[in-house]
Design a protein around this nucleic acid. Structure first.
Lengths: 231, 231
DNA sequence: ACAAAAGTGTTGACATTACACCCATGC
DNA sequence: GCATGGGTGTAATGTCAACACTTTTGT
């Protein structure tokens, strides 16, 4: 197919559904920002932005999340492209959505050049967003729910040392289900890459819980041997 | 974020991984074309093309597959976006990949304005393709393998009336596994939306197999009731 | 009658669920 | 010593995998 210039006048954007888990109030939260510029200046949206023609999307996602949260390294995966012709008032803008997971305690929310007043919202109290960002959010949340059961993503949302009650509550909150405590723990006991740190939780009111650690190296060795993660 | 024109000089393309199942030689096949234009004129590629700024991607996919195969309605789903900055020599072209499933007997391969000499290739004898189309093909095939187990996609690849041996062989070929005949058939027996047509296969050498039909309406009622498809 | 593929049930192994009490700690 | 959440095993059930013979048809 010949490529007349008229094809080269679309724009690419990324939008990031950034999730964090708040142990304090046991809520899954999503990061929303107020748009600094038109269209929809001042209104709530997912963090994101247009991508330079020579910029990689991974780079764009890193920059966006880092500029808002201050975090350097975090889990991210592409969800899918959102391509409705009329999704953006300024022209043809295809948005590639990313699911990002961060640890709340590493986050330092700051205004950036394109995102003011970033804030965490419990996923079930999310206000309406601009563009098709409600749809993107729903799709990303479904992906998170799906992937949480088959990939070790929970550990991206917790501190490197965590307790089993914390882990179980995280699963229950994100998946909106209940797990039997003993069955849940038995399943984890088979996962050799979840290690007892021999430490216990500090500063808690009653019996302190043991702290565990997710060993990424052991997990990737296990995975190469064909062992699958499943909750 | 302000939107200077420099953002609006990327192009969007779709690429279609079109799969069909050939009962005759029991192969899963993928549709490849020779490119009519530069870059890579004459070389093998996935069917696809640049998308007009006001054109929906679903439309683009339909046009492409119809122009090559003559088929009007077929199953398709987005796989994901391929976005490497250097994937296309003519500039920034983001490709959105689609998985398409067609019934071989409905197909009439014809040259089109952008695709010459379309041909079916057994997926395991696929030659190397241009751009990142090998990568796209791998990803789409993995998606097909994954979805075949949890969505009723096999019926998109078979005639509306099919036999259980055909269905089982299709699963075995696409997933590259073996199933126990009795276990496989028991699983299907629980699916009320797979109906006995009371007809049998004609013109076959030995004992004729019963013909079944996938009832889409019954399936979507079942699914609404929460029943999940699984092989 | 024979060759070839279609069709059919049962059993054991394993995985999943349901369920109730003792333990460790801070106050 | 009491209040609270942390931590532990067993039995029943359901699911999945293994397995061999009879039936139907065309020639």
């Amino acid at each position: 197919m010949p490529e007349p210039v008229e094809y080269f006048n679309s724009a690419i954007s990324v939008n990031c559904a950034v999730f964090a888990y708040d142990k304090a109030d046991e809520n899954l939260k999503i990061l929303l920002i107020h748009r600094e510029f038109d269209p929809y200046k001042g209104l709530l949206a997912l963090p994101g932005g247009l991508v330079y023609p020579n910029e990689s999307l991974d780079n764009a996602v890193e920059n966006i999340v880092k500029s808002v949260t201050g975090i350097d390294y975090f889990y991210s995966e592409q969800v899918r492209a959102f391509t409705d012709t009329n999704r953006h008032p300024s022209g043809r803008v295809v948005s590639i959505a990313y699911l990002c997971l961060v640890n709340l305690k590493d986050v330092n929310l700051t205004n950036s050049s394109f995102a003011i007043s970033p804030e965490w919202y419990p996923i079930h109290e999310k206000p309406n967003l601009v563009f098709d960002h409600d749809h993107i959010t729903d799709t990303a949340y479904q992906r998170l729910q799906n992937d949480l059961r088959i990939k070790p993503l929970a550990f991206e949302l917790l501190n490197s040392k965590f307790t089993l009650p914390q882990l179980q509550t995280l699963y229950e909150v994100v998946l909106n289900t209940q797990f039997d405590k003993r069955n849940f723990r038995r399943k984890l006991a088979y996962m050799d890459y979840i290690e007892d740190t021999k430490e216990v939780q500090k500063y808690n009111l009653y019996r302190p819980a043991k702290l565990y650690r997710f060993n990424h190296e052991k997990f990737s060795i296990m995975r190469k041997k064909g062992s699958l993660f499943s909750i």
